[in-house]
Design a protein around this nucleic acid. Structure first.
Lengths: 213, 213
DNA sequence: CATTGCTATGAACGCTGTTCATGAAACCTT
DNA sequence: AAGGTTTCATGAACAGCGTTCATAGCAATG
């Protein structure tokens, strides 16, 4: 582009630009994730196109494949952000000092609210599939722990009879059940509850499950 | 459509060949659905290709678009078959004369068994999405009633307090909850239960839900 | 038999994700 | 400061996809 051959100021510029390689790389990666996130939120998974993402990120088409292995990996990074936001929403939802069953209901309601408020990004979490051969990276798998991290503690209070292992399993089941109700309802096509009754149905489900045994 | 003015043998021949147009058309449609079903069961939704389906069905590429509007509609017809088989499996599973809670557990278990035994075809029921603008045809929507048709009667016995409307809603919720557990488990990636514990977790879920109120 | 309406055909089109040769820029060594 | 090396940005090219369309052929009709 242009060479900087000068004095004095030169060093200052050198300091600022020293990590140029990594910095520009991370910059581009973030711009790509930003663009993909916007695209995904607006058009959904099927509307995510490499050419549109790179155009919006301000790089050439091939630049995407320098920053990420492929489009799938880019989606995984967008999902990582969504999971982080969802995790924060769930943590914020737990009323401190409340009874365990109240905490459970608050968590379920927060999940419904997040799904409704981030429909396409939330859908991408569960609709996206990697090709058959490739297995999911560990950093992506472990990011899903936020989905059940807040469930286990109040459930432990409600079900002291469960072993630690059974507690985790039951937490997953509880999440999956709530998730199923929300997903089929938001899908809107089949046998889901109408939107205005999701919350009450989920509440009934959570109440039944937590009172169990 | 056509006038029948004739005698004797003529009529017999007419009977055999009269529907040639429709017959060949239906023949091709069925061959295409057969091929798509096989493809879908073997490779999943992402592995369904127009060229491979038409090759296996023994027609040219364009023939698919004479028989169906597009690939999506073909998937819908495959799903229709899967729903019919699933409905039969559920009906067969209900033990006649048993207690309502037993019926519920049997239904849930039959659903798990079907999903495990028809993983990719079952997954296609819920993974497939029509493009944004087009809305789902009615014949396809109504075919999904088999998913909850067997749930409502035993649930009505367990919950006589529910109105007819609430009963249907709760049936949908119960199905959705069970489905969520099965789906996230078979997905295998995230927070699902291990395969060998699906049945017990689903049973716990159903027991909790049916005992509810 | 002639005509008319359907249907079978596969080349062509537009769009997709991904690769690759090229050239330039940043880093490292001396 | 200069040369050598690694890294990255670029966009044309490629292979694959679903879908369309002009053409040809066949079945039904009068």
């Amino acid at each position: 582009m242009f060479k900087i051959i000068m004095n004095g100021v030169h060093e200052t510029i050198e300091m600022e630009t020293r990590n140029n390689r990594e910095q520009q790389r991370d910059d581009l990666r973030n711009r790509l994730i930003d663009a993909a996130e916007a695209q995904l939120a607006a058009e959904g998974l099927a509307g995510l196109k490499a050419r549109e993402v790179t155009a919006q990120a301000g790089c050439a088409l091939g630049g995407l494949y320098n920053a990420f292995d492929d489009l799938d990996r880019l989606v995984l990074h967008v999902n990582l952000r969504t999971l982080a936001r969802l995790g924060q929403a769930l943590r914020d939802a737990v009323p401190i000092g409340a009874a365990a069953d109240r905490k459970m209901l608050a968590l379920a309601q927060a999940y419904v609210t997040f799904a409704l408020g981030n429909r396409k990004l939330w859908a991408a979490l569960f609709d996206h599939r990697l090709p058959d051969g490739v297995e999911t990276p560990d950093w992506y798998l472990s990011a899903h722990s936020v989905l059940i991290a807040e469930i286990a503690p109040p459930l432990a209070a409600l079900r002291p009879d469960l072993s630690k292992e059974d507690l985790m399993l039951r937490s997953k089941t509880l999440f999956a059940a709530v998730h199923g109700v929300v997903q089929l309802s938001l899908q809107g096509r089949f046998i889901g509850a109408p939107l205005e009754r999701i919350e009450s149905e989920v509440a009934a489900l959570v109440t039944a499950m937590t009172r169990g045994l």
